[in-house]
Each structure stands twice: as structure tokens, then as C-alpha cells.
């Protein structure tokens, strides 16, 4: 298997896997979706009752127009920055599940209305780099004399447990498209140009000369161009040994880190399987 990086930004990757099979590429996809560990808010403690603000001399009711569980769900979905290997799973930590700086992050949220509470208002205890990756996510709107005081705890998990621990989204792959133009008998340049202009992703370029293939990778295999030329001059095929693979991350880690962890995890799983088979005797 060969991997060529075609596009790699902090949150997005486009890779080309060649000399491989769909099964192998799918194993990488599944590892990316469900096996990368990351932090997400899992436990939210809401304080109830009233709070007194000394500055304004007012009392605030610690309740909002959204149910507490709905607020907790919204917090859970926020992307918590996760440096690989900097945290451990709570049940495998040296603190034996009690909760320490190596297996959990605590955020405090203390706001008084009227205002909109954003993800940037969640303040991490300790390292300020652990502030939520997307600062502008609205969590709840507070009316006048409404307030919110919560402690939220983020722990490690994987996408297999819940989608909030899923690092990547929109992950998918497609077989490498092969677009060939071979002018058949009876076909004209005008016919080819007409067929090429139908393409929704603009794979072809029809300048003054004959029709050319300029963006083969952009082809979505719809075969509209093939149907448009009745002479059969355009052929759309796909290469089952080469795959275009794309995914995005939610911002909790970079695409490069996510891919590296996915590979590590896949190798570990295969090793586990081998050991299990060997132990059968």
C-alpha cells in the first residue's frame, strides 16, 4: 500500500491510497471513526437555587429556559482539544478511576443573564490550552435574572461509545475514476464538447482544441458524459486498486494526528487478533 497526501490542512485531509483493496481502506476508515481516543464532556454538575451578585445587589435564579440535560448534551458535543498520549482512560489511570489531571479535565461555567452563553465561557481548570476548540458555539441563552453555574468534567472515550468521542466526520473513500476519451467513428468534436459540458464537477476542459480531461480525480462516476455521447467515445471506469480517501476532524486534534492514531490502533487490533488466534493453539 502506498499513501500519497494530496491535501492536508489542520482539519481536513485528502489522501490517495494505491496498490490496495477496498477492504484495507475500509479498515482504516473504521479505525478513524470508532477507535481514536479523545476527550469530551461526560459529566455536568448543575448548581441550583439562587445566587446573589454583590456588584448589582441582585438575586439570580439558577435556572434557564432549556432543560439541564439538554445543556449537558450540548456541552458534550463541544470539541475538547486532545493532545495524543497526554491523557489516559479513566478506568486505566493510576488514580484507579477517582479522577486526576491525567484522565480528566474540569471546566467551570459561571454566567449571569441577560446574555448568550458561549463555549468560550467554559473555563478549564489548569492548562488554558484546553479551552474548547471552537469558541463561538452558543450553549444557552439566559434571560434577565437567570444565571448558570456548572462544573463539567471531560473524560477520554472513543467513537464506539458515543458520537461525541468521534474525532473525524465526513470520512469516506471512492475508487480512483478513470476517464478516457477515444473518438469513435462518426463522433465529432462538437459532440464531445457537448458531452463534456454536461459534467457536474467539470472534469473536462473544452477550449479551442479537442476535449481534454483536466480533473480526473473530481469525477463522481455519474456517467452522464458517457450517456451524452451516443457514439461511445467517452468511457468512465474506476480503478479498484486505488482509492481517494477524505476525512475532516472536529478540531479536537489535527487530521495528521488523527490518522496516525488510527494507524496505531489498527496495528494494535491486528496484533491482538494474532495473539488471540495463536493462543487458541
Amino acid at each position: 500500500m502506498e499513501i500519497q497526501i494530496q491535501e492536508l490542512s489542520p482539519k481536513k485531509a485528502l489522501l490517495k491510497f494505491s496498490d490496495t483493496t477496498a477492504t484495507e481502506v475500509n479498515a482504516i476508515r473504521r479505525s478513524l471513526v470508532s477507535n481514536i481516543p479523545k476527550m469530551a464532556i461526560d459529566d455536568v454538575e448543575f448548581h441550583l437555587g439562587t445566587v446573589h451578585d454583590d456588584e448589582s445587589g441582585r438575586d439570580y435564579d439558577l435556572s434557564t429556559s432549556i432543560f439541564d440535560e439538554a445543556i449537558a448534551l450540548r456541552m458534550g458535543l463541544l470539541p475538547v482539544p486532545t493532545k495524543p498520549k497526554s491523557f489516559r482512560f479513566k478506568d486505566k489511570c493510576t488514580c484507579k478511576g477517582e479522577g486526576c489531571e491525567h484522565c480528566q479535565v474540569i471546566y467551570t461555567l459561571d454566567k449571569k443573564g441577560p446574555c448568550t452563553v458561549y463555549s468560550r465561557d467554559l473555563v478549564p481548570l489548569g492548562d488554558p490550552e484546553l479551552a474548547i476548540a471552537d469558541p463561538d458555539v452558543p450553549i444557552v441563552t439566559l434571560g434577565a435574572r437567570q444565571a448558570i453555574l456548572t462544573y463539567a468534567t471531560a473524560v477520554m472515550g472513543t467513537g464506539r461509545q458515543h458520537a461525541k468521542w468521534q474525532v473525524v466526520h465526513a470520512v469516506g473513500f471512492t475508487a480512483q475514476p478513470k476517464v478516457t476519451i477515444n473518438k469513435a467513428a462518426g463522433c465529432s468534436d462538437a459532440c464531445l464538447k457537448k458531452a463534456g459540458s454536461i459534467c457536474p464537477t467539470k472534469v473536462f476542459k473544452a477550449g479551442d482544441g479537442p476535449l481534454e480531461v483536466v480533473k480526473e480525480d473530481a469525477c463522481i462516476l455519474c456517467k452522464d458524459c458517457e450517456k451524452a455521447c451516443s457514439h461511445g467515445s467517452i468511457k468512465i471506469d474506476s480503478d479498484p486498486t486505488t482509492y481517494l480517501f477524505t476525512f475532516e476532524t472536529d478540531g479536537s486534534m489535527t487530521a495528521r494526528e488523527a490518522l496516525r492514531l488510527a494507524f496505531e490502533n489498527l496495528v494494535a487490533e491486528i496484533d491482538d487478533l494474532r495473539d488471540a488466534v495463536v493462543s487458541l493453539g
Binding site: 471552537d134 463561538d136 458555539v137 466526520h169 465526513a170 472536529d250
Partner: peptide, 8 residues
């Protein structure tokens, strides 16, 4: 797809 969209 799971992309964070509320920030927009």
C-alpha cells in the same frame, strides 16, 4: 455528518 456547525 457531525461537523460542529453552531459556531457559524
Amino acid at each position: 455528518c457531525g461537523k460542529v456547525v453552531a459556531q457559524f
